[in-house]
Design a protein around this nucleic acid. Sequence first.
DNA 1: AGCTTAACCTGAGAGC
DNA 2: TGCTCTCAGGTTAAGC
Length: 328
Amino acid sequence: MPELPEVETVRAGIVERALGAEIESVVVHDIRSIRRYAGDAHQFVEELTGAVIVDAARRGKYLWLVLAPRHCAAGGIEKISDLSQIPPALVIHLGMSGQVLFKDSTFAADKHLKITLGLKLNDGSATELRFVDQRIFGGMFLDEWMHTTDAAGELIPSASRSNLGLPVVPRAVSHIARDPLDPNFSYADFRTKLRKTSSGIKRLLLDQSVISGVGNIYADEALWRAKLHYNKPAKSLTAAQSRTLVDAVSDVMQQALVAGGTSFDALYVNVNGQSGYFDRSLHAYGQAGKPCVRCLEAGKTSIIVREPFMNRSSYRCPRCQRAPRQAP
DNA sequence: AGCTTAACCTGAGAGC
DNA sequence: TGCTCTCAGGTTAAGC
């Protein structure tokens, strides 16, 4: 289940492997993996072929490739100041089961191979960027650039390292809030959004327009670390609790990132096809029936429970994450 | 307008 | 063995 650490692992892999690469060919094996795109498969291929990958950027779970026209050497794009002269962004979302893999064309097609980009790398060698997706909740599309300002009005782009010198994100990403690993993440903006709703706190954590990059796994882990119940009304959190929660999200994501991400069933892998191992460090998610390690260390016994939540599951310790008096 | 729910998918595993 | 049922979950459109 790719959440922020998994997507960031993929982004870093693309930067390491494909910067400066020219997209020589594009094959769409399954049209369903192209989403939110006005054109058809043929147009997708036409628009993408010949472009050069100059960067891979990310906000929350959204990942996008910054492209330059063929005639434009990698790095030369900074000189372009008119957005209309810049090729559209190649936006990638992994959904539930999406993978980005680098493999030479000699390797057999993967079982759920959806889109193949044939790349000519900087050193002249060739390889393939393969988008593989079993459940097809993910996909990719070409998207126009949009100027962006955050709530504070500053003109600073997202996590992109080479940002064209412009405050831009793909249009589809413009409604996504900054994630906790973004240097411009705002605690104040987060708390403002919490105070405006009657919803429980976990619903807000999963709302990508409030804080991005958080999915079911890291939401449960962060709530466990912050000792909060998923149904605690968001507006009832104190400023200190809000900050503690964001720090818990940030900490668990950074630790998962170091571990190469979380993996349960080999659905999530990095660009080399390897699984992360953070699942061995989970304290709440998927731990139903096991003792809460924090309670255990305190000499108490409490068993993690799994409860239905928003058509999925929530895991919590019934002792250190007590239910609010009145459920919202 | 704010909030909730259904739909999109496939495969693994459980139950019969 | 083989069938059916349930579950996994990110996002968004539709419904209330």
